[in-house]
Amino acid sequence: MPVRRGHVAPQNTFLDTIIRKFEGQSRKFIIANARVENCAVIYCNDGFCELCGYSRAEVMQRPCTCDFLHGPRTQRRAAAQIAQALLGAEERKVEIAFYRKDGSCFLCLVDVVPVKNEDGAVIMFILNFEVVMEKDMVGSPAHDTNHRGPPTSWLAPGRAKTFRLKLPALLALTARESSVRSGGAGGAGAPGAVVVDVDLTPAAPSSESLALDEVTAMDNHVAGLGPAEERRALVGPGSPPRSAPGQLPSPRAHSLNPDASGSSCSLARTRSRESCASVRRASSADDIEAMRAGVLPPPPRHASTGAMHPLRSGLLNSTSDSDLVRYRTISKIPQITLNFVDLKGDPFLASPTSDREIIAPKIKERTHNVTEKVTQVLSLGADVLPEYKLQAPRIHRWTILHYSPFKAVWDWLILLLVIYTAVFTPYSAAFLLKETEEGPPATECGYACQPLAVVDLIVDIMFIVDILINFRTTYVNANEEVVSHPGRIAVHYFKGWFLIDMVAAIPFDLLI
């Protein structure tokens, strides 16, 4: 008679799926529990143990900040960024110097990925580790590398530091407007667009060049630039800015003055950032001319202004700041037409079709709590990747769950009947059967004279019903998954307890 339990259901295979997918890609990662103190490590794979030199037993239950890997060259700011990422709910990448158990130093890129439950609360953290440099290539500990984003994938490793954006290309926007319009339909740009040429040739750093990471940081200074100062900065030398009595002219307006920039070969870094931020506020060169004239017309309804409409929906549905990093990277690809469009465009503009998908598509409701890094690593669709929660398995109709209350009560009843059979069957065979043979035949009273025979008949009927119930009862397979398919249940029961239950259900007393 089957006594099969499996009270692990309803099970959740999400954690096993993450481990299996990460292991298949030869990654070095740990999984931490966000619900406990210090976000203790609950799993670390073999790749991480080989990377740091510690065994799994030495890593388990330690804080996922990996303070046991810190050393003299470990930056405090990087460690603080990892700790801050564990307090938030967004994906974050941090470069930090770690030390192995043998004392060797290596520069590592740590990717902190939160995993949320159905309520939107962070319950786990996945920390992925990628070695960037070994100890002989690690720089000085005073050099802070965590304020910069990861290198873009479309640049060669040897040319990542030679990417320079020439400031004269930004200063000569109005001069290039006529050349853009003359391109017409034969050019790649839309009317009114501004073409910015980027020099990728390796050259020595000069005062006129600005690194790509500095251009990325310009967006942080746009908020500090007032509207009046932006307007004066875009007017140009024809209309000098008016300053109040006793007030000095704005240095932001002076930063885009061609006369002032041409007199000296070098520009201050602050002026460069502010000038680029001011130019980015204009949607095209037409807006710059309109600002000089004193009238700013409404933005025209053409394809170039609607190019950012799908980007707005993608940004609203993005799951991490990696989408913004990807957008900034692609927006700086050289030799393309940049349409400086305000994100607050007309909502009635139709979304044009684009061959290049900048932001990841909208994630469906079932995966809105899973970050983009987890979705990318697992390579699963929205119909396959579940949320991290207890999910009731989908069972067929008329199927009994093996952990249901009805099955528990039924098993206790069958257990009592088995005990009765084990006690009274030998007793009936030894004593009652002998008395029946010696006594007179009682054929007239039937079952009324033999109450134990009636009980034995009921017990046999219950055993037959138990066999039928076992054909529709779920079970737990070797992978700790609840199986509810009727065919698989029948095959599993035939290979197991079916023969024993059938022999126990045969009414031998009635056959004798």
Score class of each variant (00 low, 15 high):
residue 103 G to R: 13
residue 77 R to W: 13
residue 317 N to H: 09
residue 64 C to Q: 01
residue 117 N to V: 09
residue 157 P to G: 09
residue 219 D to R: 10
residue 196 V to D: 02
residue 135 K to D: 08
residue 199 D to M: 01
residue 289 E to M: 14
residue 38 N to C: 09
residue 375 T to L: 14
residue 40 A to T: 10
residue 112 V to R: 01
residue 95 E to A: 05
residue 75 Q to I: 01
residue 286 D to Y: 08
residue 28 K to A: 13
residue 4 R to E: 13
residue 193 A to H: 01
residue 223 A to F: 04
residue 378 L to F: 03
residue 269 R to V: 07
residue 247 Q to Y: 14
residue 47 G to Q: 11
residue 207 S to A: 15
residue 296 L to M: 14
residue 173 L to R: 13
residue 258 P to L: 12
residue 180 V to T: 14
residue 213 D to Q: 06
residue 212 L to Y: 06
residue 46 D to T: 06
residue 162 T to K: 12
residue 64 C to Y: 05
residue 230 E to M: 07
residue 211 A to Y: 09
residue 264 S to R: 12
residue 267 L to Y: 14
residue 148 R to E: 15
residue 137 M to H: 15
residue 354 S to A: 14
residue 335 Q to F: 04
residue 183 G to C: 06
residue 213 D to H: 15
residue 131 V to R: 07
residue 152 T to I: 06
residue 291 M to Q: 11
residue 18 I to Q: 06
residue 363 I to L: 07
residue 88 G to A: 13
residue 29 F to H: 01
residue 331 S to Q: 07
residue 142 A to H: 05
residue 351 S to V: 05
residue 41 V to C: 03
residue 252 R to N: 05
residue 252 R to E: 15
residue 343 L to Y: 07
residue 108 C to H: 01
residue 329 T to I: 06
residue 162 T to N: 15
residue 312 R to K: 14
residue 213 D to L: 05
residue 386 P to T: 01
residue 285 A to N: 15
residue 364 K to W: 05
residue 186 G to V: 09
residue 269 R to S: 11
residue 254 H to G: 08
residue 94 V to G: 01
residue 144 D to P: 14
residue 32 A to D: 01
residue 73 R to Y: 15
residue 378 L to E: 01
residue 176 R to A: 05
residue 352 P to N: 07
residue 275 S to D: 11
residue 345 G to F: 04
residue 105 C to Y: 13
residue 128 N to E: 13
residue 319 T to I: 11
residue 96 I to E: 01
residue 39 C to F: 07
residue 331 S to E: 09
residue 80 A to W: 10
residue 196 V to W: 01
residue 114 P to I: 01
residue 162 T to V: 07
residue 172 A to M: 01
residue 48 F to I: 01
residue 275 S to R: 11
residue 348 F to T: 15
residue 287 D to R: 04
residue 361 P to S: 14
residue 241 P to G: 12
residue 360 A to H: 15
residue 253 A to E: 15
residue 363 I to R: 14
residue 340 F to L: 15
residue 114 P to D: 01
residue 344 K to M: 12
residue 152 T to F: 09
residue 69 L to P: 01
residue 199 D to L: 01
residue 73 R to L: 09
residue 272 S to T: 09
residue 35 R to D: 14
residue 64 C to E: 01
residue 78 A to W: 01
residue 348 F to H: 15
residue 354 S to C: 15
residue 27 R to L: 06
residue 125 F to M: 05
residue 372 E to W: 07
residue 116 K to Q: 11
residue 36 V to A: 14
residue 93 K to F: 11
residue 54 Y to M: 01
residue 367 T to N: 07
residue 92 R to T: 15
residue 46 D to F: 02
residue 336 I to C: 15
residue 341 V to K: 15
residue 105 C to G: 08
residue 288 I to T: 12
residue 161 K to Q: 13
residue 42 I to V: 12
residue 307 A to P: 12
residue 181 R to T: 12
residue 385 L to M: 14
residue 180 V to K: 10
residue 236 G to Y: 15
residue 225 L to K: 05
residue 202 P to Q: 06
residue 316 L to V: 07
residue 136 D to S: 14
residue 106 F to Y: 03
residue 308 M to W: 05
residue 147 H to G: 05
residue 278 S to Q: 15
residue 296 L to P: 11
residue 127 L to I: 07
residue 347 P to V: 07
residue 258 P to V: 09
residue 349 L to P: 09
residue 58 E to R: 01
residue 16 D to E: 09
residue 158 G to E: 05
residue 160 A to G: 12
residue 63 P to V: 03
residue 141 P to T: 06
residue 32 A to Y: 01
residue 267 L to K: 08
residue 7 H to T: 05
residue 295 V to P: 09
residue 150 P to V: 13
residue 248 L to T: 09
residue 139 G to I: 06
residue 167 L to D: 10
residue 27 R to G: 13
residue 368 H to E: 08
residue 143 H to F: 05
residue 57 A to G: 14
residue 287 D to G: 08
residue 98 F to C: 05
residue 138 V to M: 03
residue 4 R to K: 15
residue 100 R to H: 14
residue 310 P to Q: 07
residue 5 R to W: 15
residue 349 L to R: 12
residue 138 V to H: 13
residue 19 I to L: 09
residue 193 A to T: 05
residue 208 E to N: 09
residue 202 P to H: 05
residue 116 K to L: 08
residue 323 D to Y: 05
residue 203 A to I: 06
residue 42 I to E: 01
residue 28 K to N: 15
residue 99 Y to C: 01
residue 149 G to I: 06
residue 123 I to N: 15
residue 84 Q to R: 15
residue 29 F to I: 01
residue 369 N to Q: 11
residue 103 G to M: 06
residue 150 P to Q: 14
residue 341 V to S: 13
residue 27 R to S: 11
residue 53 G to W: 01
residue 287 D to F: 07
residue 207 S to P: 06
residue 114 P to W: 01
residue 141 P to M: 14
residue 182 S to M: 07
residue 245 P to E: 14
residue 324 L to M: 14
residue 54 Y to F: 14
residue 376 Q to Y: 11
residue 246 G to C: 10
residue 64 C to H: 01
residue 80 A to I: 14
residue 281 R to N: 07
residue 343 L to V: 09
residue 316 L to I: 14
residue 342 D to M: 01
residue 330 I to V: 12
residue 353 T to E: 08
residue 300 P to Y: 15
residue 23 E to V: 03
residue 173 L to T: 15
residue 188 A to C: 06
residue 264 S to E: 11
residue 54 Y to T: 01
residue 60 M to H: 01
residue 136 D to W: 14
residue 137 M to W: 14
residue 364 K to P: 04
residue 84 Q to Y: 03
residue 177 E to L: 06
residue 278 S to C: 12
residue 216 T to L: 09
residue 290 A to D: 15
residue 58 E to Q: 12
residue 340 F to D: 08
residue 78 A to H: 13
residue 77 R to H: 13
residue 305 T to N: 05
residue 157 P to L: 14
residue 178 S to E: 10
residue 98 F to Y: 14
residue 193 A to Q: 06
residue 103 G to A: 07
residue 255 S to P: 10
residue 197 D to S: 01
residue 42 I to L: 07
residue 126 I to Y: 14
residue 79 A to K: 08
residue 197 D to L: 01
residue 18 I to R: 01
residue 214 E to A: 05
residue 266 S to A: 05
residue 137 M to D: 04
residue 342 D to L: 01
residue 218 M to P: 15
residue 126 I to T: 09
residue 312 R to T: 14
residue 182 S to G: 13
residue 106 F to R: 01
residue 308 M to N: 05
residue 35 R to K: 06
residue 340 F to Q: 15
residue 186 G to P: 08
residue 265 C to M: 15
residue 246 G to K: 04
residue 227 P to N: 11
residue 12 N to D: 10
residue 373 K to Y: 05
residue 361 P to V: 04
residue 287 D to V: 09
residue 40 A to G: 14
residue 162 T to H: 15
residue 16 D to N: 14
residue 334 P to N: 08
residue 275 S to T: 06
residue 272 S to E: 14
residue 257 N to L: 08
residue 199 D to E: 08
residue 126 I to L: 11
residue 108 C to E: 01
residue 26 S to R: 13
residue 357 E to W: 06
residue 376 Q to A: 11
residue 2 P to C: 01
residue 36 V to P: 06
residue 176 R to F: 03
residue 275 S to L: 05
residue 59 V to K: 01
residue 167 L to T: 15
residue 106 F to A: 01
residue 354 S to F: 07
residue 122 V to S: 11
residue 179 S to P: 08
residue 14 F to T: 07
residue 384 V to E: 04
residue 132 V to I: 14
residue 165 L to V: 06
residue 209 S to A: 03
residue 84 Q to H: 03
residue 287 D to W: 09
residue 126 I to V: 12
residue 73 R to T: 11
residue 347 P to C: 15
residue 209 S to C: 01
residue 120 G to Q: 14
residue 93 K to C: 13
residue 212 L to V: 06
residue 224 G to K: 14
residue 297 P to F: 14
residue 143 H to R: 14
residue 53 G to Y: 01
residue 110 V to M: 03
residue 140 S to D: 06
residue 162 T to W: 14
residue 55 S to D: 08
residue 23 E to F: 01
residue 331 S to L: 01
residue 253 A to C: 14
residue 326 R to Y: 08
residue 82 I to Q: 01
residue 362 K to P: 06
residue 212 L to H: 08
residue 146 N to T: 12
residue 7 H to Q: 10
residue 376 Q to M: 03
residue 285 A to W: 11
residue 268 A to G: 11
residue 275 S to P: 14
residue 122 V to Y: 03
residue 361 P to M: 12
residue 359 I to F: 05
residue 273 R to K: 13
residue 57 A to Y: 07
residue 11 Q to S: 10
residue 64 C to N: 01
residue 245 P to N: 15
residue 296 L to Y: 05
residue 347 P to A: 11
residue 100 R to M: 01
residue 25 Q to I: 07
residue 40 A to V: 11
residue 99 Y to G: 01
residue 239 S to M: 05
residue 275 S to M: 12
residue 219 D to Y: 06
